[in-house]
Nucleic acid binder design. Structure first.
Length: 283
DNA sequence: CACCATGTTCCTTG
DNA sequence: CCAAGGAACATGGT
């Protein structure tokens, strides 16, 4: 679930529910997600803190708190591969892999993460190594062209690098490259200025459209599956709503016809991850 | 049992 | 010091 558009949609859902509220009875159930802090130190640091704003930097979620004594005023969290955040009724049972929870009025905030690749902590080191936000003015065609041009790596690897541009992951790299007509195996240094311009537009359109789609979805999917009863947003075990099916043009569509030309989509492995592309449209 | 999965960090090699 | 590539982290679905 978590690349830039999914994280953006998530924080838009969380803001009205959490901003202005206080953290009550925090619990850390997966201490592995903390960075060198014990579960007790973490819970005591945020207990009673007043959440002021929720922001996003790349795929990182930033919880900001009203400054209080020498307590931290920032929590930096990442969903990893399988993280989700939502509110559920206080009395509802916690999901098996709940990592961090706290009480919020009559509800309970839950950060669950089955694989445990996510994070939740007070360090902001990773934010300092991050490139521009792709939808901001800081991300220019010139920046993209220059950074690709000086790299011997594949374009796929370049776009996955959060220090070049933040927010893209395995799905939206495949989608963006397809939209731009560029093969993922092409070397960064082989990019042309016009291809960089096409890629720049493709990235921004792909991400913007995904955000728009997410924003159009209903907040509460509970009607689609009994197990999701009472959960907001991407609660655990909720069936994919019809609007989200078949939304990708190449990702996960190996062997099916390209929407542009009808050729069969190929899947290759790059850096131990799948890349999907149309061998005819993408040169 | 095999393989695959929306990510980041750390380690090794050159 | 940097660039590039690979393994590790841990769990679940097919």
């Amino acid at each position: 679930m978590p690349e830039l558009p999914e994280v953006e949609i998530l924080i838009r859902h969380l803001r009205p529910l959490l901003e202005g509220t206080k953290i009550q009875r925090p619990q850390v159930l997966k201490p592995g997600l903390m960075d060198k802090i014990s579960a007790d130190d973490c819970t005591s640091a945020i207990n009673g803190a007043q959440l002021t704003t929720i922001d996003r930097r790349g795929k990182f979620i930033l919880f900001r708190f009203k400054p209080h004594r020498n307590k931290p005023d920032l929590v930096v969290s990442h969903l990893g591969m399988t993280g989700r955040m939502f509110l559920q009724p206080l009395k509802a049972p916690l999901p098996k892999h709940a990592a961090v929870t706290w009480r919020c009025g009559d509800d309970q905030f839950v950060f669950e993460d089955p694989r445990g690749f996510g994070s939740f902590g007070f360090r902001d080191d990773s934010l300092k190594r991050m490139g521009p936000e792709p939808l901001s003015e800081a991300f220019t065609i010139g920046h993209l062209y220059k950074e690709l041009k000086r790299s011997k790596r594949t374009i796929k690897a370049c776009l996955m690098d959060q220090s070049l541009v933040t927010g893209l992951g395995n799905i939206y790299v495949s989608e963006s490259l397809h939209r731009a007509g560029i093969r993922p195996t092409k070397r960064g240094q082989a990019i042309t200025k016009s291809a960089a311009a096409a890629l720049w537009s493709a990235i921004r359109e792909t991400l913007s459209e995904a955000i728009e789609l997410g924003a159009s979805l209903k907040l509460d999917f509970q009607g689609s599956e009994k197990k999701g009863d009472g959960l907001f947003y991407f609660g655990s075990s909720i069936k994919t709503p019809p609007e989200l099916e078949e939304r990708f043009l190449v990702y996960g569509r190996e062997g099916s016809p390209c929407s542009q030309c009808g050729s069969f989509i190929k899947r290759i492995t790059q850096d131990n991850r799948g890349s999907f592309y149309c061998p005819s449209c993408q040169k």
